[in-house]
Computed example of a mutant assay.
Amino acid sequence: MSAESTGLRARIRYGRLTFRHWRWGRPFWAGLLTIVAGVPIAYFPYANLTLGQLTVRMATTAGSDSLIIGVLLGVLGLTMWFQSSVRIFSGVAAILLSLVSLVKSNFGGFLVGFLCALIGGALAVAWTPGTPAADEPGEKAERPDGVPDAGGDGFEPVPGLSDAPAVPAQAGDPYAQPEPVPAGAVADDETTEKNGRHRAG
C-alpha cells in the first residue's frame, strides 16, 4: 500500500468524521426531507409525460403556485440545516406548505412531496439539540480497579501512622523574624552546659 493511498484514506475518513459531527448538531434528516419534498412539487406541474406517441402535459393553472411552494420548501430545508435555532418555525411552515400543496400542486406532487414535507416538518419540530451528560453532585468517581474513590488527594493512608502532622506546630507566627541575640549572650532556647548541669530555656 502506497503512502498516497494511505493519505487519501485518512482525508476521506477525516471528511466523514467532520460531516458526522456537523450532521449531529442540526436536524439533518428533517432538512433533507424538506428539500426533497420541494422537487416533485415544483417539477410535476411543468413536466410532460410521454406514453408512446401520446404526450400528457401535467401543467395546471396553479403552476406558479407549485413553483413557489417548491422553492419555499427548499429554503426551509436549508434553514433547518444552517439556522437550527428557528427549526420550530421552519417545521411548522413546512407542514403548512405541505397541506397547501395538496390543493395547489397536483395533490402535493402526487403525494410524494406532501409526505416528505409533512415528515420533515414534524422531525424539525421534534428535534432538540443534545447536551453532554454531567456528573451529579456527590457522585463518586471510580478508580481503574472499579472501587469508588472517596475523594481527597488520591493517596491511601499508610497503616501504623497517625494522622498527626509530621512537623510540630510552631508557637506564634511562623513567618515572624527571630529576635536578634546580643553578642556574647546565649539564646533562651539554647541548651548550655554549666557546672555539669544542663539548663533548658
Rank of each mutant, 00 (worst) to 15 (best):
I119S: 03
A94Y: 01
E142G: 02
V100P: 08
A134D: 10
G70W: 01
D145G: 09
S85I: 08
F114S: 08
L49N: 06
T50I: 15
L49T: 10
G77H: 02
S98Q: 03
W127Y: 01
G74H: 02
V36F: 10
G109Q: 10
C116G: 12
V92C: 10
S98W: 03
V100Y: 12
A117L: 07
F44W: 11
G52W: 01
V36L: 14
T50A: 11
T131F: 02
G138H: 05
I95F: 11
V92S: 10
S101L: 08
L67W: 00
Y43H: 06
D149F: 01
A59F: 00
V147K: 01
L73P: 15
L102H: 04
E142I: 06
I35Q: 10
T61I: 14
S105V: 09
E142L: 04
T34A: 13
S98P: 13
L118H: 10
G113P: 13
N106E: 05
D65N: 12
A150N: 12
G108D: 04
L102I: 04
A134P: 07
G91Y: 05
L32F: 13
G70V: 02
I69Y: 06
P132D: 03
F110C: 04
Q53F: 04
A134Y: 08
W127M: 01
A122C: 12
Q83N: 12
M58C: 08
C116R: 01
L96T: 14
T131W: 03
K104I: 00
G109P: 15
L33Y: 06
G91C: 11
G130I: 03
P132R: 07
L51K: 02
L49D: 02
P148S: 08
D135A: 14
S64Y: 04
N48I: 00
R143H: 07
S85T: 15
V147R: 00
D145K: 08
F89T: 15
G138I: 03
Q83D: 09
T34L: 07
L33W: 05
N106L: 14
F110A: 13
K104D: 13
F44L: 15
P137Q: 00
P137E: 01
I95S: 12
I95M: 15
M80W: 00
A141I: 01
P132L: 07
V36W: 06
F107N: 12
V39H: 03
A126E: 03
K104V: 00
I69N: 09
G74P: 10
A117N: 09
L123K: 03
L73H: 11
L96C: 13
L67F: 09
W81K: 05
K140H: 09
I95H: 04
K140R: 14
G63A: 12
L96Q: 08
G146I: 02
L73M: 13
G77F: 03
P129W: 00
G130W: 02
V100D: 12
G63Y: 09
S64R: 04
S84G: 07
V100Q: 13
R87G: 10
K104Y: 12
G52F: 04
A94D: 05
L99M: 11
I69C: 10
A93C: 13
A126M: 07
V103L: 10
Q53E: 12
R87T: 08
N48E: 09
A47P: 08
L97F: 07
G109N: 11
Y46G: 11
L99N: 06
L123W: 09
P129C: 00
G151F: 02
A133D: 01
A141N: 03
N106Q: 08
K140S: 11
P132M: 03
R143D: 02
L115I: 10
